[in-house]
Design a protein around this nucleic acid. Structure first.
Length: 267
DNA sequence: ACGATTTGACCATG
DNA sequence: CATGGTCAAATCGT
């Protein structure tokens, strides 16, 4: 067992849990408030916009906290090595992992951060896929993306996405997303370093009695092959208020990731 | 026709 | 030599 994962909940995780709880409550509030509005009215759109802003904001906070956590764990690992010596087995395993993250990149591009998410796409940037590899012994392939502005603006940012091997064998699919290189491009004049998870096109408002997890995971119509999860998230030219609706479902999925919340809110 | 994705080949690194 | 990151031709979707 990896000590990085077995360590007790970090303070960041506690905060993340609380924010997720707020988001879950917000989704409930969303469901209560919105049906009372005329869907075509400007007021309904305003309400959606406000929810969207809140969700985006909390998503950013969570992403930053998760990144901080990753770095803290790496720092903790170095400390652990110093205090426990080099012969320790777990220490050795972790050393390999850290090395891999740091050195295996060919181009001199810095590892910016990594997150674990159920929605590895739509992090605020447009990405072009330029490769896919089956990594030794891993169950799932790794996909390579570079910023879509690499041509136009010479942005060198890249990311890799790989589905996590969850030991539970459950229904929730998690993805490791690693970011390399800072964005030098501008997106509508706003720079979003790490952004929210969103959901697929045209998703209905959350229905608490019918788990959207099953919709998400077993969407056979879209699942052309095992690794083509991207198809689930395609949202070409989606109006803002529709993205908002999609957000609600993404939030439900995200919340399922956190046992405390899922028991309280989604049971 | 064009842009995006797929996929096998190529190549740098340890 | 094995591994993993990148290239680029082929293919796909619109």
């Amino acid at each position: 067992m990896n000590i990085l994962e077995s360590s007790t909940q970090s303070s960041s995780q506690v905060v993340i849990n609380e924010i997720e709880r707020q988001r879950a409550l917000m989704t409930d509030l969303h469901d209560l408030v919105l049906p009372k509005r005329d869907p075509c009215s400007g007021q309904a759109k305003l309400v959606q916009q406000l929810f969207q802003d809140i969700f985006n904001s909390s998503s950013k906070v969570i992403s930053f906290l998760e990144l901080g956590d990753t770095r803290e764990k790496q720092a903790n690992h170095m400390e652990y090595k110093r205090t426990h010596g080099k012969n320790n087995m777990e220490s050795h395993v972790l050393e390999e992992e850290t090395k891999e993250v740091r050195n295996k990149r060919r181009k001199n591009v810095k590892h910016i951060g990594s997150i674990v998410t159920q929605a590895p796409h739509f992090d605020g940037y447009q990405w072009n896929k330029y490769g896919q590899k089956w990594i030794s012994k891993a169950k799932h392939s790794r996909s390579y993306y570079r910023c879509a502005s690499s041509k136009g603006q010479g942005c060198l940012a890249t990311k890799t996405v790989q589905q996590k091997e969850t030991d539970g064998g459950g229904t929730v699919r998690l993805f490791n997303v690693d970011y390399y290189g800072q964005h030098v491009c501008k997106k509508d004049g706003i720079i979003h370093p790490y952004v929210a998870e969103t959901a697929r096109h045209g998703a209905p408002i959350v229905n608490h009695n019918q788990s959207s997890i099953s919709t998400f995971v077993n969407n056979d119509a879209h699942r052309i092959q095992d690794e083509s999860y991207e198809n689930l998230f395609t949202m070409p030219d989606m109006p803002q208020y529709l993205i908002d609706i999609g957000m609600a479902e993404a939030l439900e999925i995200t919340s399922m990731n956190l046992p405390l919340i899922s028991e309280d809110i989604w049971a």
